[in-house]
Write a protein that binds this DNA or RNA. Structure first.
Lengths: 356, 356
DNA sequence: TCCGGTCCTGACATCGATGTCACAGTTTGG
DNA sequence: CCAAACTGTGACATCGATGTCAGGACCGGA
């Protein structure tokens, strides 16, 4: 009769009914293997002191049920309570700079079986706290963040609890923690020095929104270098608040059409550089006005002229950040430090033109 | 004496000691607010029937302890058991195509309070099952994946359990589920037709590894279009197995140096297109040999000549995939369907040269 | 005044796993 | 040969939350 039993009979059968829509638990595996749940737990986690025969039976049962243990249920009771999960907050996951950082972090993380949550902020401070809270509710083991809000003081309690925190790309305010940044001021100074060395004195600065910390740093590096070179900065065109390609494009064209157009341009962010390249081309000035950009741009070497840039190293920034997180998870209790990743001037042509 | 009590006194105080290193639970909040845990739960989850005064007390207590509820502990008991988490498997999070898809998915997800895990596979089949298992252990509500393994049959039990599954960019084998892909064959055919219309007959094909499903489709589209045009495909150079810029570069140079160099090239993937552009330039052939690429390339319009491409729409692919996941989570039980996202031919110069 | 219905609240079982501990059987060592 | 140590195993409490349910306070209407 067993093979003929109706559905209600089946559902009431002593062995837990194998409903394909139900997710199997250790209890189900244990029942099928004829052992206790704790033994299943031991087998799944590779703990010692289980006889080979039992291991085999449990493995077979788990396999046949397609059992996947619930990591979070385990963490609830587990001693260290680690979720093997990291949270990453970036400008946008669609942006190549963020992508390279993300990839580096993932490379270190996946080697340790750690999964990575990523969230885009679009430089919107309101989204920052929401995103952090979403990660905290999911009990991430650590947080890597590109800061946009004015102050990160709201993270202090979390930091005190021992959650590793690393700020990348931008320095935090109101928190003492690990920080990994590019050498923004020095890179900007190097770009400026490069243009000065080719004889430029009238160098325009195209900058991002001034509430972004790196944008300030780059402007500072630019102006300080001009100061060191004895160039009066009073009549130097310093344009800020550009946040996309289009704004940069328009700003550059306005500059070219101004009374005293610059002989060189320092564009302090990759989208701004692209907007500037477009502007120069539209006005046919790409072979006369010099350009150096901050942050590398894809295919910059294939343009004519190639675009000279101060390249950042986003992969290295991500790598260092992830390394810091894991060092702290492994017990490092040293004070938070700032790690500076050097930038590199890559000359490709656009920055090596002399003023006409 | 209270204000003078020593640390051990403090630790043993009847009110649970407020250890800043301990993560507060609802129990702690309840104790501080002088209510039961269930009431805290009600307040935190915005359930009705709690007096305004109690709500205020609980909120204040939660705030002062910096309490963040444990989402996963809640899910354990919660009826639907949703983790508000999605898993995404892509080629590489550092790749702009993946980045755009990822961003689209995140945009829909974050509007619903859903967090997104991303993992890179580097087209390595071994990593696929590991990554999927990592997501399953974390109880993601749905899975969006760019497939690399031969068969996705191992996902069948999960699919039967009702976990929404969407395959993006590449069609799965052995599973019937939602699929979102570009129109690879049609796009390749359009590119080929475009080159034919400019009089080319000797068109070389540069392709990716043939175990990648989209690579096969694009080759098929190319060859079928030649067939329709009555061009004998026997002596058409079809080179496959190119998986990076360098390999493409070398292959193209070899073609140019062969006995009968092609008058046009169809490069069927973005890295291959970049390698091809480099090769043409190195041999000074970029103004004589036509080129059309599959998949857009950043700054392609600023090159000289601009690179004509068949552009995919990764954002739309991601958007559709996420929309399907959420539709299924919302109860859609219809059979899995394939959604084809159209490609678009963008003419910029490199594809509009006639054979010399 | 009494009854039934809201409103507010907390005790308790429970979700799926792991930590602790107890216990039986088997070795080991003196 | 027996105590001590080790091996293999499962019962049970527990992690942090939510679902269920029951009970007391308070309301309006008969």
């Amino acid at each position: 009769m067993t093979s003929m039993s109706g559905p209600e009979d089946w559902a009431a059968s002593p062995v837990d009914a194998v409903d394909p829509r139900a997710r199997p638990t250790m209890k189900n595996v244990a029942a099928l293997a004829g052992v206790g749940v704790k033994t299943v737990s031991r087998v799944i986690n590779g703990e010692p002191n289980v006889s080979p025969a039992t291991v085999a039976r449990v493995r077979a049962a788990a396999e046949s049920l397609d059992f996947h243990p619930d990591l979070h249920a385990g963490n609830l009771r587990r001693a260290d309570g680690r979720s093997s999960t990291l949270g990453l907050l970036v400008g946008s996951v669609g942006n190549p700079f963020s992508g390279a950082m993300h990839r580096a972090i993932e490379d270190l993380a996946s080697a340790r079986g750690v999964a990575v949550f990523a969230s885009s902020l679009d430089d919107d401070p309101d989204r920052e706290e929401v995103a952090v809270s979403a990660f905290l509710r999911r009990r991430v083991d650590g947080l890597i963040l590109t800061t946009v809000s004015k102050s990160q003081g709201y993270l202090l309690p979390e930091l005190r609890r021992g959650t590793p925190l690393v700020f990348v790309d931008r320095e935090p305010a109101g928190v003492q923690a690990d920080v990994v940044v590019s050498d923004n001021a020095a890179g900007a100074a190097a770009a400026t020095r490069h243009l000065l060395s080719y004889g430029h004195r009238r160098i325009a600065f195209l900058g991002d929104r001034t509430d972004i910390q790196t944008a300030q740093e780059r402007r500072r590096g630019f102006l300080e270098e001009l100061g060191r070179a004895g160039v009066a900065t009073a009549d130097i065109p310093v344009i800020t608040g550009l946040h996309d390609e289009d704004a940069a494009n328009r700003a550059l064209i306005a500059l070219l059409e101004s009374e005293h157009p610059p002989t060189a341009v320092f564009s302090s962010q990759n989208l701004i550089t692209i907007g500037a390249v477009r502007g120069l081309r539209e006005r046919g000035a790409h072979h006369t006005v010099a350009l150096v950009g901050f942050d590398d741009v894809p295919l910059a070497d294939l343009l004519e002229p190639g675009v000279t840039v101060v390249a950042q190293n986003p992969y290295e920034i991500g790598r260092l950040a992830a390394a810091r997180i894991f060092a702290r998870l492994d017990g490092d209790r040293s004070a938070g430090r700032t790690y500076v990743v050097p930038t590199e001037l890559i000359t490709r042509g656009s920055g090596e033109m002399r003023p006409k």
